[in-house]
Design a protein around this nucleic acid. Structure first.
Length: 118
RNA sequence: CGAGUUGGCUGGGCGGUCGCGUCGGCGUUCCCGUCCGCGGGGGCGCCGCCGAGGAACGUCCGGACUCCGCAGAGCAGGGUGGUUGCUAACGGCAACCCGGGGCGACCCGCGGGACAGUGCCACAGAGAAAAGACCGCCGGCUGUCUUCGGACCGCCGGUAAGGGUGAAACGGUGGGGUAAGAGCCCACCAGCACCCCGGGCGACCGGGGUGGCUAGGUAAACCCCACCCGGAGCAAGGCCAAGCAAGGCCCGCGCCGCCGAGGUGGCGGGGGCCGGCGCAGGCGUUCGAGGGCUGCUCGCCCGAGCCUGCGGGUAGGCCGCACGAGCAUGCCGGCAACGGCACGCCGAGAUGGAUGACCGCCCAGCGGCGAGAGAUCGCCGCGGACAAAAUCCGGCGUACAGGCCAACUCGUCCG
């Protein structure tokens, strides 16, 4: 789980990450990663978006809690000041814990890899 | 033992490794204040307590609470509908009444009024409300045929006993009566209206009498009667900070959900309204602009500022916010719902939203294989229903894998 300081608490933070960050999708999740957050942010923070399309309240809670446990160790590997928004897709409701983990790793790696000029 | 009815309880357990939130304690650090004793606030670490449901759900009904409004009257609108109770209140609950179903335990009922008025009653049928002659029955007349008894065609009239249609055809049975028939008359029965007696707080029940012989259904059709109802909602509302930026509320339409109807909610888009600021224009201060009585009218009150257009805001923090129509036990009153008294307990409080994630074992359950006459045993695999607080209570409605308990009914067997 994540402590309060490691979570996104404002809708403006979500908007900044989703609009300004780099996006990468893998099967069950979509990751928005914003690296160049200006100063004063001590450590990396994460937020989650689980819409009603995923399922009812019980299913949404389960998906969000699984994603939090998966994101926690990976947050330390990100640079300070980074902002991550993980959005769950409807298929996340049926996915296993392992599938969610591999999809999250793949999406995070794709988002961190700078886009090469062709 | 089998079949069933009703009510209640429960809603997996244990362990390991990582974690989260509120509160309390200790330590540490930073900021502010200081009468230098310390006080207040924030961060981090450790320890401890507690941490989703019977439906937390849908948000349908009723309240508490908050703000707005509150001289009064009337109208409109909405809701409820057997009776008596219970309750803060209810459209809820209990008991009873009436009607219907079941051998029975018991279950079901949106259960005021159809002689206040209006409307509607599809299809079928001749005719659907104080109706109706299609066939039939009966009488008369003309004509044809005749075995002289009568038969048939047509027209006029009588007739609601019979046939046929329908969910429903204007009481039923028997007798008298008649050309044939008919409550036309009579007896009994059913039903209706009124009166009397008895029982019940009451809905109503039991008995008797009189009357006219008969009255259809539908009120979640309009309507009538009785009773109830100000409006908006915790994003209520209060305080603080920031401050012109993506605000809030209401009403239709479309889609979706619950759904018989009615009603209600969510999302998207459209329209309208509200409050603070700036600019421009206009109106007005006893010759009264404008506003309030949250839909309208009368009437009343306030009143020096107000109206229109354009530009155009704020969802950060704290409080509200958890001791309450509270829960458990016992006793008493009551058929019961429920009430009273005594004693004990404190049981979530998030805000991009905590209450968990992963793994192992066990207990229910299901399936397969093997052993056994069978009860059963062993192994393997699958695998925990429906669904999560958001101001708080009381209900209703809906979803739900299973498991357990009690009372009662019917049937069979034994004593």
């Amino acid at each position: 789980m994540l402590a309060a300081a490691q979570r996104l608490r404002r809708s403006t933070d979500f908007a900044a990450a989703v609009r300004g960050g780099r996006r990468a999708g893998r099967g069950t999740v979509v990751v928005h990663l914003l690296l160049d957050e200006p100063a004063q942010a001590s450590q990396a923070r994460a937020g989650f978006v689980v819409s009603k399309a995923v399922g009812n309240a019980v299913v949404r809670n389960k998906v969000r809690r699984r994603l939090r446990h998966l994101v926690r160790p990976r947050l330390d590997e990100l640079p300070a000041g980074a902002t991550v928004v993980v959005r769950a897709l409807p298929s996340a409701a049926e996915a296993s814990f392992e599938t969610l983990g591999t999809d999250l790793d793949a999406a995070l790696a794709a988002a961190r890899r700078p886009r090469r000029p062709r």
